[in-house]
Design a protein around this nucleic acid. Sequence first.
DNA 1: CCATTAGTTCGACTATAATCGAACTAATCC
DNA 2: GGATTAGTTCGATTATAGTCGAACTAATGG
Lengths: 110, 110
Amino acid sequence: MKQYDHPAPEEFQLAGILHALADPFRLSVVQKLMQKQPQACAPLQDGRPKSSISHHFAVLRKSGVLRTEVVGVTHMNSLRLQDMEARFPGLLAAILAAAEQGEMSAPQPA
Amino acid sequence: MKQYDHPAPEEFQLAGILHALADPFRLSVVQKLMQKQPQACAPLQDGRPKSSISHHFAVLRKSGVLRTEVVGVTHMNSLRLQDMEARFPGLLAAILAAAEQGEMSAPQPA
DNA sequence: CCATTAGTTCGACTATAATCGAACTAATCC
DNA sequence: GGATTAGTTCGATTATAGTCGAACTAATGG
């Protein structure tokens, strides 16, 4: 049951986080995790092949946005809300608030 | 004295803004504009060739982060603080606060 | 132990973005 | 009007990212 490496909060790079969240799919993953946490990768997959999903989760993980815990056969993802808040207070909240604003003017079909 | 196109606040894309600010040079431009506004491109140039600078300013302009006004022979840049605040309240402030946090742990020499 | 599930890793390909020199433009100054 | 200043645009090059199939791994369930 080998686990993943996660950066410590001191290692978080603002550029890495902004880059991670500048991708619409990755941002939507974060939004979905805000609503329900933790979640495995599979339900967030949105039709994409597994290798792409794996890549996007790795970007989010390496930036510090989320943590992945291997639980049996599934990989459970949770947002590192406390760590993010400790390192960059208010950042994630502001970005998620902005993401909701953004959806007002550009709603996407289910 | 032709001027530039600037997107209206409703057209701002969160992804575009995050992408614009995910670049260390561009973020530093924004930080410098926070300290002194408006400023021409030249003093922010940091040794890079003019064509690169022009590119980075264009990215910031198209994302909505700053406005460029042609004033005689110089192009004066200012942050679109009100527009940003109207569209994505608190976002820029949170990112700039995070950028200062970031500099705590990774200070760069003058 | 074999099949299944859930996801990773690899490698190739494509797409997007950054970099920079060179030629250009538009306003100012003499 | 020629020179200077400040920046743009173009085009080529390189670098970074995203995409996806195929083979792999690790845990679970029969």
